[in-house]
């Protein structure tokens, strides 16, 4: 994995030596043999030597960057904000809301359950619904049969106007 690295260290041996020298620069423990090899390469290779010199300059420039200082009153502002958060911490507010919602849901559920048990409803279809269902049955005698519009209309007509009347009867 490159992690987006595109530094211009092409030669594998030089790159390895520079990696070791980077560790040595920061006082990291490195096997003596590796350290010796890296130092030898840096002494013999102008490219590696130039990189080390560039690191020195970079390091000095980075260390010399001006530091920031807090403006007057910063501590007071932070403490005031912290006191405000302590007075009404967000976690407590959220927990309180969650508890209230849970309580409301429990009350609603127990009320509904109690009412249902106390007054059980009768399962009975409305007469209009039954008639409508019957009408639908004229069009489709079984759930798997195709719609028969003609038979359905005739059946519905008979149901409404009686068996003796015909829609095509002369006036």
């Amino acid at each position: 994995m490159t992690d987006g690295f595109d530094g211009r260290v092409d030669d594998a041996a030089r790159a390895e030596a520079l990696r070791v020298l980077s560790l040595l620069r920061d006082g990291r423990p490195v096997p003596a043999e590796e350290a010796q090899r890296a130092r030898a390469l840096a002494a013999a290779d102008p490219g590696a030597a130039a990189m080390l010199a560039a690191w020195e300059r970079q390091s000095a420039a980075l260390a010399a960057q001006p530091a920031r200082a807090a403006s007057p009153g910063f501590t007071g502002r932070v403490l005031a904000a912290a006191r405000g958060e302590q007075a009404q911490p967000a976690e407590v507010l959220v927990l309180s809301l969650v508890r209230r919602l849970a309580l409301a849901a429990a009350l609603l559920l127990s009320g509904t359950l109690g009412w249902s048990l106390a007054f059980p409803s009768v399962l009975r279809a409305d007469p209009d619904v039954q008639r409508q269902r019957h009408a639908v049955d004229h069009f489709r005698p079984t759930p798997f049969a195709p719609d028969d519009l003609d038979a359905g209309l005739r059946g519905r007509y008979r149901e409404v106007y009686g068996a003796g009347l015909s829609p095509e009867a002369p006036r």
């Binding site: 690295f5 530094g7 211009r8 260290v9 520079l18 980077s22 920061d26 990189m51 560039a54 970079q58």
Partner: peptide
């Protein structure tokens, strides 16, 4: 270790 080494090389390239 890896990031510091790479950062140093990359910073030089950017400079």
């Amino acid at each position: 270790e890896s990031r510091i080494f790479r950062a140093r090389c990359k910073l030089r390239a950017l400079l």
